[in-house]
Design a protein around this nucleic acid. Sequence first.
DNA 1: GATGAATGAGCCTTCATTCAT
DNA 2: TATGAATGAAGGCTCATTCAT
Lengths: 191, 191, 191, 191
Amino acid sequence: MARPKSEQKYDAIMQATLDLVIELGFHGLSMAKIAKRAGVATATIYVYFDNTEAILNQLYMDLKQLVAKDITQGYKPYMSAEEGFKIIWRNQFNSLVKYSKEYWFLDQFANSPYITNISREEGLRQFRPVLDFFKQSQENGEIKQMPIEILFPMFYAPLSSIARSVNAGHFEADSEAIDLAMGSSWASFKP
Amino acid sequence: MARPKSEQKYDAIMQATLDLVIELGFHGLSMAKIAKRAGVATATIYVYFDNTEAILNQLYMDLKQLVAKDITQGYKPYMSAEEGFKIIWRNQFNSLVKYSKEYWFLDQFANSPYITNISREEGLRQFRPVLDFFKQSQENGEIKQMPIEILFPMFYAPLSSIARSVNAGHFEADSEAIDLAMGSSWASFKP
Amino acid sequence: MARPKSEQKYDAIMQATLDLVIELGFHGLSMAKIAKRAGVATATIYVYFDNTEAILNQLYMDLKQLVAKDITQGYKPYMSAEEGFKIIWRNQFNSLVKYSKEYWFLDQFANSPYITNISREEGLRQFRPVLDFFKQSQENGEIKQMPIEILFPMFYAPLSSIARSVNAGHFEADSEAIDLAMGSSWASFKP
Amino acid sequence: MARPKSEQKYDAIMQATLDLVIELGFHGLSMAKIAKRAGVATATIYVYFDNTEAILNQLYMDLKQLVAKDITQGYKPYMSAEEGFKIIWRNQFNSLVKYSKEYWFLDQFANSPYITNISREEGLRQFRPVLDFFKQSQENGEIKQMPIEILFPMFYAPLSSIARSVNAGHFEADSEAIDLAMGSSWASFKP
DNA sequence: GATGAATGAGCCTTCATTCAT
DNA sequence: TATGAATGAAGGCTCATTCAT
């Protein structure tokens, strides 16, 4: 498990797992299907992972790293909190749309009994840069004082929810709608 | 002329299913486990439901009806939008805390492949009174104009997310914190 | 079981069973399906029959009586053996075609482990008039001497086999073909 | 590179299936029983076959090949049709007696809903040498002209029926009886 | 007599995992 | 390392039959 011999096989297993969970849900997953889709033998999977749970947790951490990358891209410390907020909001929204399937997996998995505490903590770590931005802005008095347990849901939950609606095709988010949502969200934080 | 179906057994099956999904997740569910927990024979479940999916969908609709009840309780038409918003917000928050497990189930199920369109639509119907409040207030110009697909996530998602944090014991929501969150949320809607 | 109260229900159960066996084979049969098809409750079937085996045996005997009726119709004692043979052969052939499904059932059932010795003997009894004809004709020296265990297969098996081929649509038996088969068969018996 | 499939297990499954069908009929068959009788785990059967139907069809084809072998053994092209007929008739009769159980299975299966068209065609192919003999003899004018759909039942059905009677112990076929039956059968074909 | 609910036993099939190669 | 065969356990579901009404 430590250092996989073939990176290609490791990747194939991860990709197959993600695809299958998206297609069939967690319930429809099985080692046999993963193996078939990945083009390896079932027993081979056990060379790379201890069991199903391990595959899913690894996938969770890999994806978390993938999607959380560059969320603060474009933000510069000299910017105003509002500017920064909007850049990060938009980045996050774009990420949610671009990686809709990955986010769906992350969300489902985070609420499943499979997830280990290690994965959960590792996952949270990815949000650190965003949290840093908010903490900094609060210290500057540019956004309202509120505990992180309120601030973060306030920022992330509607974003995620709207993006899901867009991804499901229930709603078309043109630039006007996005500006509206973003502005509306910013109003929650403006001091 | 034969034995009538037993309401008690129906309830036991529903309760057992809810408990088990909460304990083990959807993946850990099985007819045998439901039966054992409900104190009936496996085959008996099939007298009441066609299959696992049917049980879950029925549970979804039953719970949706249970938790969505009285969310607008205390709201009067002559109230200002802000007053109404705060009453409904608080009702919803209390409901989310009181029925935390039920909401967790509803949330997970709504994002699972088990849910049928019928259940989904039936579920949405329960939110009608809340939507009506918002629509009315928009017409009065008391809250900002925005499409329902933005408005609703903006209202519901942070609420749900904070309540989950509270229920998980990660955060203690004293009345001050609640006021803060509620006020912060209201800022998003204030014209 | 002795004297059924409702002849109508008895008939419905018999008919449903026959239809289902023909549609699904013995393997696909079940009390629940019979009940549904017959329009009665499952438990009701047990008022009329002890179990599945009893239904099938009764059906076997009923059908045996139905199809074997009038096989010797038209035969008169003063006729020559050849005349008699041809009348009976044709009757049997027509019967096999007319009651193709019933014969299929009888054949399958007679070779299944369901059949009891009582049913088997009762079934054989229906062939008595035909056997009598052959015995009589042998005594008259109009057909070859041979034991019944040869004579009967020689007469019945090809007939049945050809009819099955016709019923399956593999072969169209015009009057010429029938005369050919019948004549060919008669050659086996001619002294 | 893994363990190869075991011919021994394949054979054990086939043999167990044949034995069980003979003992209990198709209805009494089950994967669990086959597995137990064959001395393998239930799941192991699925390594070799897709499902019950596949087992039965394979068994059908295997047995068809076994029993149809050497039916024309001893026949030489220079022989008269009558000589050939009698050799083949006797071979077939001996085969029917020797492989009585196998023939019983083949017969039952061919009339069951399990059989696939592929199996049916494969089964017919085994009779080709016998059919060729008849066709050849008809062309030579040594046996009566009649369509194959009559000729074949005429030849095979009584043979099979008599053999069954012998196998069931209802009839002892001494050489005199056999000559009688064979001669009687030949009379049907003699021009 | 007639019914439909109730159930233990059984069905076929798939599962995660280990074993032999 | 990589593999596919092997399997005990578990899955969903149906069965014949009995029970309560």
